[in-house]
């Protein structure tokens, strides 16, 4: 039946959405990365599901089998997994540096600190002008 034939994809979609939700909604930078990982793995599931054929076996050629699942999808996902882990590693390194620089990995706290930085810049930008004017007077 139509709906039953698609159940696998729907499970994958739920996973994708969970991961995506975590990325957007959470303030903690590490949790965001965890969400990103789930989001990406869910997409891998999707590709592998596309490659699956009922009653087939792993694509390692052998005389005993006739039907194999899709090797191309597997190959693409191998590449994608590598890309995923690379992104995660780089992201974690960034988080470590952010923790060192800000003392926090909560997005809102970092934003508060950044706004302060910017305010200081602004004060500095307009501060000297006033001094200058007073001098002239």
């Amino acid at each position: 039946m139509n709906i039953l034939g698609l159940y696998n994809y729907w499970i994958v979609i739920i996973l994708i959405l969970i991961g995506f939700f975590i990325v957007i909604a959470h303030e903690n930078l590490i949790k965001k990365l965890v969400g990103l990982t789930i989001f990406q793995t869910a997409v891998f599931f999707f590709y592998i599901s596309v490659g699956k054929i009922k009653g087939a076996t792993a694509p390692i050629l052998d005389d005993r089998w006739q039907l194999y699942s899709n090797p191309l999808a597997h190959c693409l996902i191998l590449t994608a997994i590598v890309v995923g882990i690379s992104t995660t590693a780089l992201g974690l390194a960034l988080v470590v540096r952010i923790q060192e620089a800000y003392g926090s990995i909560e997005e809102d706290e970092i934003q508060t600190q950044d706004t302060q930085d910017q305010l200081e810049c602004q004060l500095e930008a307009y501060g000297p002008r006033k001094q200058f004017l007073t001098k002239r007077i």
Binding site: I16, F20, V23, L29, K32, L36, F39, Q40, V43, F46, Y47, V50, A73, A80, V83, T87, L90, G91, L94, V95, R97, I98, A101, Y102, I110, D114, D117
Partner: peptide, 30 residues
């Protein structure tokens, strides 16, 4: 230090973008 957060933000946005693109590629391949 804001370079770090900028880079992190770019990483998150960029990865979401890239993942969207592979979802697109996957659907088309399908």
């Amino acid at each position: 230090r804001r370079a770090l957060t900028a880079s992190y933000q770019y990483l998150i946005m960029g990865t979401i973008g890239a993942t969207f693109i592979i979802i697109g590629v996957g659907l088309m391949y399908m």
